[in-house]
Amino acid sequence: MSAVATGTPTRAAAGITLEHVTRRYGAGPGGRIAVDDLSLEIPAGQVCVLVGPSGCGKTTTLKMINRLIAPTSGRVLIDGVDAASRHLVDLRRSIGYVIQHVGLFPHLTVAENVATVPRLLGWSPARQRERTDELLALVGLDPAVDRDRYPARLSGGERQRVGVARALAADPPVLLMDEPFGAVDPIVRARLQDEFLRLQEGLARTIVFVTHDIDEAIKVGDCIAVLGVGGRLAQFGSPAEILAAPASDFVARFVGADRGLKRLSLRLVGDLDLRAASEVRPLPPMAPMLDRSTSLKDALSMLLDAGVQAGAVVDDAGAVTGLVTIDMIAASLRRSAEGAPDAG
């Protein structure tokens, strides 16, 4: 069987290339184009987010990668190999898939759902069980309590997490995630996004991630493909590039009027040249305490909230190491807009 059977997390990820991929539903003038001549180059180990309004072809694009849908024209290459030439079942078992409507198997327990691909690959029961418990803990479920429950008894958010665990089970080099965190509340969503990023840091899989939430796209994406109505690519670039220079009115509207603030959310206090603490003495009594990993967006919000011009940057021990001012934050935004590369 394929290399997936080993499940070693050190396996190199695979790059994904879409070459002039078009998908049309229905022939003739009555047909509609779901994905229109889409070309994308997703480097190995990166998270590429597909965003766009409902019906713009995000799900269709994902399904053309694991061949649930065949392109009308164009090619999908995985690791340089035409996906259409691969053995269908092997291809799919090597690609983790989180489907938009979760689609857990109702007749299988949580653990059996998660172990689906390992079971198909013929792992030993002991190894399946070990991997399942590890993954359940990873997505924030309690293996001891949840492993033997049936999907019908889970909340929507719990089901979604089981769906993510199931996609990760055989540690596939490529992951397709269709709105994986759509059904959870904002707090859990933020936690799952953080978990997801932490995980991805260690494993560096190639991930195509679908969302219609631009904030989620900016947070989790190394690159973002904005799709427009009719399945046409509106812009492809890093989050910073798209926020700093939207390619069209459509993209600008889609990323929102607050894209300046969103850009600030990509940069950290630690990225600034901090002013020495000695320059402004004494600190205003209300000055907020920030640390170097606070985003500039949060820093600005805290300064405005406190009604002061400057905040103190403290280290882990609580000692003041520098100052951040509203002017410095605004200047950093201007600099990056003038073409200086923005830290993604």
Binding site: R92, P106, T116, V117
Partner: peptide, 18 residues
């Protein structure tokens, strides 16, 4: 079987028979 369940089965690499 709901369509999304069949889609999951196909997407995860079940053969038709399986």
């Amino acid at each position: 079987a709901p369509p999304e369940v069949l889609e999951a089965a196909d997407g995860l690499g079940y053969t038709r028979r399986q």
